[in-house]
Design a protein around this nucleic acid. Sequence first.
DNA 1: CCTACCGATCGGTAGG
DNA 2: CCTACCGATCGGTAGG
Lengths: 230, 230
Amino acid sequence: MHLAPAARSPQDVPEEVNRRQALIRESARLFREKGYDATTVRDIAGAVGMRSGSPFYHFKNKQEILKAVMEEGLHQGYERSVAALAQASTLQQRFRALVRTHYGILHDEGSEFIAVLLYDWRSLPPEYKQEIIKVKDRYDALWQPTLQDLMQAGLLGANSAHDPAAADDVKVARLLVMGAINFTATWYKQQIEKTQPTQPKGHPTVAALRMDLDALADRTVRFFMRTDPA
Amino acid sequence: MHLAPAARSPQDVPEEVNRRQALIRESARLFREKGYDATTVRDIAGAVGMRSGSPFYHFKNKQEILKAVMEEGLHQGYERSVAALAQASTLQQRFRALVRTHYGILHDEGSEFIAVLLYDWRSLPPEYKQEIIKVKDRYDALWQPTLQDLMQAGLLGANSAHDPAAADDVKVARLLVMGAINFTATWYKQQIEKTQPTQPKGHPTVAALRMDLDALADRTVRFFMRTDPA
DNA sequence: CCTACCGATCGGTAGG
DNA sequence: CCTACCGATCGGTAGG
């Protein structure tokens, strides 16, 4: 019987991987809060109890951290959506599952990765963009069949009977729906906010609407979906 | 008969104002292209043929330039929308006017102000945020009556007959619709692109869809509006 | 992963 | 609006 390898943590994950994950998690939080450019490598190091030069032991440079944050978000989004879809049976349930899950990865506490993707996309170098786009396409593809079915059933978009849901239409529909949801990143305020100094850092115009994510998802689904033409 | 004051330009505007306007215009272009943080005061100065220290003759600091850019966008948006609404008679026309105008201020060449507002909101200091919010509220308010009427007519949102368009519903509807439109800033590519080095700087996933702003506005209106329940 | 450090850049200013 | 400049900060590295 062999001795177990030394530095291993709870789930048999090398400690080095844990540190890397901690850097990704804290970076996401900081990027979401202050933006990529405004976040210092020293901020990141400090958040995980390192000194300023040490993050570069785990990442080649600051931009690689940004890339890792975005990848993490898309992976989580994909996994959660697949799981949610597996629980859904009706068409409406599938749509709601996708919407609710997307709201989750966008607004759940500790899930700032996708918001960073949306906010700081410009800061990602072109080479990295191409890699992220691949993972993002995989996520977006999860929406396509459901939206396609909704449009063909006349439950989404112009219910004109002329051309039956061209692929192009479905794509635009997805962009508009996901756009509406993504943009909540700028105005939706979490119900349960931590006890933190409340500076006016919300988006323009919007007094916090009292809605949890379930309510927001319901309203969103109801807003976009036509009621069953019974 | 008095002599006309010396340094005046075409429309009897002091040259100093022109220089200031040039700074705002070029800053908007640069901010939109590279982001506020990534844009240097030296970049801005260079774009209008000044030396690095000179923008501070017109603005107290870099943040004041950002504020001025956002104000300019909201003023233009307001003026254009009022003008467009004045041309519209039917409810559908009013909706389309608002949508089309918003697309214009978001995507027209030389109209990068609102995109900067959306992208770089975080970089604006809290004191300035409050000022901008006031102007933004004025712009948003232009949408409210039209959306209200649409919802009451059952042409927008859940066409359930239960509660007849609460103020809250209209607000959420506006946020979702404007969110969908605003988010096109990340994926819509102008048809006529200037002859510039085409680096892959677009948003993830989206191959450019062949649509001009009129087509995009039409599709958006059709996507959100129920057809007249004739 | 730390210590010690560097080169570059950046917003902003004085003084004209 | 220019010249000349400064203090601060920042990403990143060498060497252990």
